[in-house]
Amino acid sequence: MEVENITTVSEFILLGFHEFSDLQIPLFLLFLLIYLIVLMGNLTIIALTCLDPRLHTPMYFFLCNLSFADISSTSVTLPKLLDILRKRQRISANGCFIQAYFFMVTACQEFLLLTVMAYDRYVAVCYPLHYAVIVNQRLGVLMVTGTWILGFLVPVANGVLLPQLSYCKSNAIDHFFCDPSALLKLSCSSTSMFESVIYVMGGFVGLPCFAATLTSYIYIISTILRIRSAEGRRKAFSTCSSHLTVIILFYGTILSLYMRPASMQSLDQNKLFALLYTALIPMINPMIYSLKNREVKETLKGAFHFNKKQFT
């Protein structure tokens, strides 16, 4: 594929999964199906949470926001991948920088929301009698509002720095969206400032979120192990099993994507891990919560029975 060797970039070319050019139609159908499932699954969680009074609790309020964050994350990256049938997936330079910024925004929001949900589960398991007092509606709204504000503010410096770099090596991004790390590979100016800000952002958001989540589950598991009856342990674990599954998938993917040694990294692997993080995890999150959560399953059954009566 021809690429331009230029100093001032007006547009970029997303190479996507160009190595599978003979599978364009099957891949287009696959990615379209994934996107539709993400939308349908997460919108279902949001609708059920809003419509069923039984789900008007802090836990489901957090889950509703996580579903919205998953939709946002996928909508930022996947629609451009659906241009796979075109020979060249072009995106304007400004559009690329905006996409990179919102990708960082959604990543921050996911970290923060999952941490808030870990705290919610910690209080529910460790202080069940005081849960309604500690995690009340006001605190829930404040915590979620804080995650969205921080999610937009933390990546601002990176969003400002990206357009300031000179891109003279090429305008072809070997990725399916404007991933900041892929953009840095095209820069012929120093990227040390951007990388320093990334480390600061990771230290400000990533590490504290991981530490808080890990600490919460250490206390949760310790509390569950002290419960004498097997039935009591099962019930206590069931209150956080869905969130724990999502946490393992999320952090496992992030660590695999960004914490591998440079010698073990390849562009193809990075794209596959990025696809897992931006598309597959948002697709299976609603399934995890609906399959492992009694209230959600009961609400779904009620909705199906109601619709069935309407058409009979």
Rank of each mutant, 00 (worst) to 15 (best):
I34P: 05
I34A: 13
L36H: 13
I37Q: 08
V38D: 04
L39T: 13
G41I: 12
G41R: 04
L43Q: 06
I46T: 08
I46Q: 06
P53S: 14
R54L: 09
R54Q: 09
R54E: 07
L55S: 04
M59Y: 08
Y60P: 04
Y60A: 05
L63R: 01
N65M: 14
N65G: 02
L66W: 11
L66N: 05
A69D: 03
A69S: 10
D70Q: 13
S72D: 05
S72F: 15
S73P: 01
T74L: 04
S75R: 03
V76T: 14
V76E: 02
P79C: 10
K80I: 14
K80Y: 15
L81P: 04
R86D: 12
S92P: 08
N94A: 07
N94C: 04
C96P: 05
F97L: 10
I98D: 02
F102C: 07
F103H: 07
F103D: 01
C108V: 13
Q109D: 07
Q109K: 10
E110K: 12
E110F: 11
L113Q: 07
T115W: 05
M117Q: 07
M117C: 03
M117H: 01
M117D: 00
Y119R: 01
D120I: 01
Y122K: 04
C126R: 05
Y127N: 12
P128I: 12
P128Q: 09
L129A: 11
L129G: 03
L129V: 04
V133R: 11
V135G: 00
V135N: 02
N136P: 06
R138H: 10
L139A: 07
L139V: 09
G140Y: 00
V141M: 11
V141F: 10
V144Q: 00
G146P: 10
G146F: 14
G146I: 12
T147P: 04
W148C: 02
I149L: 15
L150Y: 06
G151P: 04
F152M: 06
F152R: 02
L153Y: 07
P155C: 10
V156F: 13
V156H: 05
A157P: 11
G159F: 13
G159R: 09
V160N: 03
L162Y: 03
P163T: 08
